[in-house]
């Protein structure tokens, strides 16, 4: 189609004389049904914007952005998790043919092909058709990509231990407040050290590499005994190898921690 001053119209209309099949019809041919950007159309856009903003503000006011405890690069027990929009990639890299020696395939080849195809979409899909049903390959590829992204994200969310994630990142040392004093000479504390409880729950019992805090649990002595015997979360049952009497002392001690 000729552009600029060479353009030829049909009669006195704004319909160009020769229409290139590759180029979508120009909306200026539909004179009379259009409206000016300002103020008529902008107002509609701003209405949508205002509704959207209210939603964002409500979300922001009710849900604070998460903040975990200060980074400790030596904490090897921490299981990292990316932000949700990278979850699908995180899950994808767990597949046997996308991990280990094949990591470059999962991390570069496949995302590279996906983004490369996205870049080149206009040159791969060159036909004149624009309706999604009339170009099944392009539509099908995108639907497949969306389906796999959704599936991988869902799978990742479904199979992740969110409880553990929440606990491992909890802020334990609140700035300006000193960690609670622990009586290291108490019988209960000595038992915790003897049976290696402190290696997970921390020397100060306020949580550590793999275990949550033991302070101010609000559990009775019996409830603590039950957890020690049967385990909870990542803690397997039967870790405590001492006598029943020692278990009683230990449970009393933990439930008394404030």
């Amino acid at each position: 189609m000729k552009k600029g001053k060479n353009i030829k119209y049909v009669g006195d209309s704004r319909v160009p004389q020769d229409i290139d099949k590759n180029i979508p019809t120009d909306f200026s041919q539909y004179a009379g049904k259009t409206e000016p950007f300002y103020p008529s159309f902008l107002l509609k856009e701003w209405m949508v914007g205002a509704v959207f903003l209210v939603a964002l503000l409500v979300l922001s006011a009710t849900h604070a952005a998460p903040l975990e405890r200060i980074a400790d690069p030596n904490d090897t027990a921490y299981i990292p998790l990316p932000d949700w929009y990278f979850l699908f990639l995180y899950e994808f890299l767990k597949f046997p043919y996308a991990s280990g020696p094949y990591l470059p395939i999962g991390a570069f080849v496949i995302p590279g092909i996906a983004f490369g195809a996205l870049f080149l979409a206009p040159f791969l899909d060159r036909g004149p058709e624009r309706r999604p049903l009339k170009r099944p390959i392009a539509t099908g590829m995108m639907l497949l990509a969306i389906a796999s992204i959704f599936y991988l994200t869902w799978y990742s969310v479904e199979h992740h231990d969110w409880e553990a994630t929440k606990n491992q990142g909890k802020i334990v040392d609140i700035p300006g407040e000193d960690a609670p004093e622990i009586d290291v000479n108490a019988d209960g504390y000595k038992l915790l050290v003897t049976y290696a409880c402190t290696s997970c729950h921390g020397d100060k019992l306020n949580g550590g590499a793999a275990g949550p805090t033991l302070i101010n649990l609000g559990l009775s002595s019996d409830e603590v005994t039950k957890i020690v015997k049967e385990g909870k979360g990542a803690m397997p049952p039967g870790l405590f190898k001492g006598t029943d009497e020692e278990l009683k002392t230990l449970s009393d001690y933990i439930s008394s921690l404030k």
Partner: peptide
């Protein structure tokens, strides 16, 4: 006026 109102609100 409506535009200004909505814009001001945003």
């Amino acid at each position: 006026y409506t535009l200004m109102g909505v814009g001001g609100f945003m």
